[in-house]
Design a protein around this nucleic acid. Structure first.
Lengths: 138, 138
DNA sequence: TCTTGAACCTCTAGTCACTAGAGCCATTAC
DNA sequence: GTAATGGCTCTAGTGACTAGAGGTTCAAGA
């Protein structure tokens, strides 16, 4: 049995966050001691590790709830779980695409970020004032 | 003079968001009609366009406040504005890096996202349960 | 001039995924 | 027994908006 602090240490999820997950129903409420403190077992640890991992991969709490619900239904879970993961992948790709466009734009606007000298004329404020100076749409 | 709706249409910023920007001090409070409705001039339009553009590039409200404060001080503004933009660039690059790692991981976990058939064994839930199956740290 | 309907106003509360703090209680080691 | 550490609940705050209620103003047509 683990205390909430031990669970936190093992999973890397902060203590208030664990309580928050319980409050939202993502993590089942564990047993309590006579003194009302939470005590977790291996199943709790596994569940939290799952959540942690999925959050790291950018899944929303909602999506994780969906995945957890699927774990009890091995018959239909594969396709549904895959759909959720695919949606997540598409989301990540869209974000990368957008960020790359922004990186390009910022790289053009900001000078001297890589240790070179700063240019004489101040381009940053002018660029931000006038969208027409941009190379890409965004 | 523009109504808040016209300003919204011209800049692409939603009406409640414009009011929110005013509330937080990012956008100066404009004149009002006798009936208490906001009326904006060209300066207001320009300021909001600046904000919109900077938000599009991922600048935080705080950073934008900083940039706006600099616009009145052409002497020292260039270096400071550049610093803010460089920080933003570094931030964008860090996000891209992280997202690419996630993309790789998701691509490995999720199968058949690109229209191919779904694999027989359900890998998604297993992968999310067991971090040890991951190729990269994250 | 009157009426209608769209657009405007303020205010409160909700979103997401936590995070911070106050004030109190339980456990554990010495 | 006592002190340190860690746990408990509850409320409120974060950022950048978004939604909704309930009321007012404006501009155009009859």
């Amino acid at each position: 049995m683990f205390t909430i602090g031990q669970l936190s240490e093992q999973t890397g999820v902060k203590v208030p966050t664990i309580r928050y997950y319980e409050e939202t129903g993502l993590l089942p409420a564990p047993d309590r001691t006579a003194g009302n403190q939470r005590r977790y077992d291996a199943a709790g640890l596994e569940r939290l590790s799952f959540i942690r991992h999925a959050r790291d991969l950018g899944f929303s709490i909602d999506a994780i709830s969906g995945l957890i619900a699927l774990q009890g239904h091995p018959d239909q879970s594969c396709k549904a779980a895959n759909d959720i993961a695919c949606a997540q992948l598409a989301d990540a790709r869209a974000k990368i695409k957008k960020l790359k466009a922004l990186e390009k734009e910022l790289n053009r606007i900001a000078k001297g970020c890589d240790g070179q000298g700063v240019s004489e004329n101040c381009y940053v404020l002018a660029s931000l004032s006038d969208h027409a100076l941009c190379e890409d749409d965004h």
